[in-house]
């Protein structure tokens, strides 16, 4: 039915010029388009261009030397590690949450949806802070390590023996990254799966498919683009997060610095060329993310025609 209507509209549109009533005067169109483009160019494109210009200001040699610096490589490795743990964790969570929320009726569902979005409302600095409170040596985790009669004494002994710290160390960075990227996958999948409904899953049930078969062969193919979309955004944020990671990182060069933190250190040392060289990696990631995102949107739009 919907296709018929669109088709009809297309035909009408072809036959008659677009209704004058919904058209703005040419000068209005020109003016607004110019304002919009200038605003976007000035506020968004210019900073992006500045990153690459500053990065290459001292020449290609300096640029690449900055990237293969020992500490730079360590920062890159840590950033990849944090993303490699937090993104899959949030993918599993996002799929589970979307499945529970869209396939079943239960009380408190709207509260749950709101709670999932909470991390987006929390300042990055606070995201880091709360992990310091829980996992810092002054926090609950520290109390546990120093407790005289702890739960699971063996665990305490092991943690103390291994000198296992979370804050100002890699685990803290992974946790903070997981927190700030928490909602991305779930909030892409929930509306998508709500819109798609459950008829195909029910059809699979009547045809004798098992739970895993339903998910693998019916649900997953239908949500794959939405899932991919969520993963790209989640990954971009995971690799680029600054505030939260800055709080929980010990800022130890070569050990607990991610790329954004390394950018900050270089910048504060007035090593601008190197700082912008590292920043250009993240800018490239941003461009890559936007290109992929547009591609997914286009793919999604074309696969849902008709």
């Amino acid at each position: 039915m919907a296709t018929t209507v669109t088709h009809l509209k297309a035909q009408l549109g072809a036959a008659a010029p677009v209704s004058r009533a919904t058209r703005d005067a040419p000068w209005v169109r020109w003016l607004l388009t110019a304002v919009a483009l200038l605003f976007l160019a000035g506020f968004l494109v210019l900073p992006l261009a500045a990153v690459f210009t500053e990065a290459l200001r001292k020449g290609v040699g300096v640029y690449f030397r900055a990237l293969i610096d020992h500490d730079a490589l360590a920062a890159i490795r840590l950033t990849l590690l944090a993303a490699a743990i937090s993104v899959p964790a949030n993918v599993v969570f996002g799929v589970a949450a979307a499945w529970a929320i869209t396939k079943f009726q239960f009380r408190g569902k709207n509260v749950l949806i709101t709670l999932i979005d909470l991390p987006f409302a929390v300042s990055p600095v606070i995201s880091g802070l709360i992990y310091v409170l829980v996992f810092g040596l002054q926090g609950w985790y520290g109390h546990y390590l120093n407790a005289e009669h702890p739960w699971f004494p063996a665990l305490q002994a092991w943690l103390v023996a291994k000198d296992f710290t979370i804050i100002f160390a890699v685990p803290g960075i992974v946790l903070a990254t997981t927190f700030v990227t928490f909602p991305f996958v779930a909030r892409e999948l929930i509306p998508l799966m709500q819109a798609q409904g459950s008829d195909e899953e029910y059809a699979a049930v009547t045809l004798g498919a098992s739970g895993w078969q339903i998910f693998r062969r019916v649900t997953l193919p239908n949500i794959k683009w939405g899932l991919f979309y969520g993963v790209i955004l989640c990954n971009a944020r995971a690799m680029g997060e600054f505030g939260a990671v800055s709080v929980v990182s010990g800022h130890i060069r070569g050990e607990t610095n991610t790329i954004p933190l390394h950018v900050e250190i270089l910048y504060n040392e007035y090593n601008f060329a190197a700082a912008f060289a590292m920043a250009s990696l993240l800018a490239l990631l941003a461009i890559f993310t936007l290109v992929l995102k547009s591609f997914v949107e286009w793919r999604y739009a074309t696969s849902h025609k008709g």
């Binding site: 971009a236 680029g240 997060e241 600054f242 954004p260 950018v263 800018a283 936007l290």
Partner: peptide
């Protein structure tokens, strides 16, 4: 872009 570009950058 502001969603994708890390804030430090």
């Amino acid at each position: 872009l502001p969603f994708a570009l890390p804030t430090a950058v």
